[in-house]
Design a protein around this nucleic acid. Sequence first.
DNA 1: TTGAATGGTTCATTTTTTGAAGTATATGGC
DNA 2: GCCATATACTTCAAAAAATGAACCATTCAA
Lengths: 155, 155
Amino acid sequence: MPTPDTPTKSVFDIHALEGIYLLYWKMEDCTEAIDIPIPLSKKERHMLVCLDQPRRMGDLARELLALPSTVTAMADTLEAKGLLFRERDPNDRRAWLLSLTEQGHDMRKVMASKASDLFRDISGLSDDELDQFAKIALKIRSRIMETGMPKGPQT
Amino acid sequence: MPTPDTPTKSVFDIHALEGIYLLYWKMEDCTEAIDIPIPLSKKERHMLVCLDQPRRMGDLARELLALPSTVTAMADTLEAKGLLFRERDPNDRRAWLLSLTEQGHDMRKVMASKASDLFRDISGLSDDELDQFAKIALKIRSRIMETGMPKGPQT
DNA sequence: TTGAATGGTTCATTTTTTGAAGTATATGGC
DNA sequence: GCCATATACTTCAAAAAATGAACCATTCAA
């Protein structure tokens, strides 16, 4: 019978990564339970949260690891629910900019603040640790935004 | 036209969380590209990585935020691919323990070590920061494992 | 100007997830 | 021990979500 795998010698071992995955999954799980007036799927929630400012559909698709056609569908339903609207990108008239309506912004704010609270509870970190973690997470965020957002599914 | 939302005053603000999400998504994206002899879906990969030691299907379902029936289906395909096998849990003969075959363990090790490398590249952190981040991620991991794994979808 | 590339849409197909009903084992009260 | 109820997993049909190919409009570059 196989015995548990021994940790690799690498600095950042798989159990730390597992911590990140668990955190993500647990956040997903608890976020489901946030009570919002209009029911949204997980991906739709993420899309909403990504829209702190107007974004092009293609960018969203890459960030959310979705195909353009998937983003079209999600934008359709969020638009139908009155949470966002499309505007032509003045710099490229092929592209749409998605922007939140006032209702969309309200909902996004509620979700963002609840998510932040959830993170504190779930992680159980001290203020000091939260601070350290946030600092590094922000670094990772800028790094990914600079050096390459996810490429997303290839067609 | 709505202006970008102002950050909340909470210690752990939404942009830090966004960093964690981006990290997760980018890891998903790059992990797709890891070349393995037997093609697996994302969830199947996660399941494999979770099986560093024999686990009950119900536990996996909760951790992976899937329904029991979904885990049954995934276990079936991974079993058919020769990567894991079922054994009755001697402590509860209703339950199955999923264990990796030797091939499964080999594949898991490859994926775990590549994931670790990927993380270093994607995050772009210094060794010192990696260390700090890993320490905190491990804390979060134990915290979640103690105080409550995800409940998963409710039937 | 024109041909190739890009941004998004449409829609039929495939994949994945869901959930209700079922089997087998466990657990707690009597 | 016996029964009722709960738990662990399975089955399978229905629903939801993602995919990808064909398409239109605009942009970019030769």
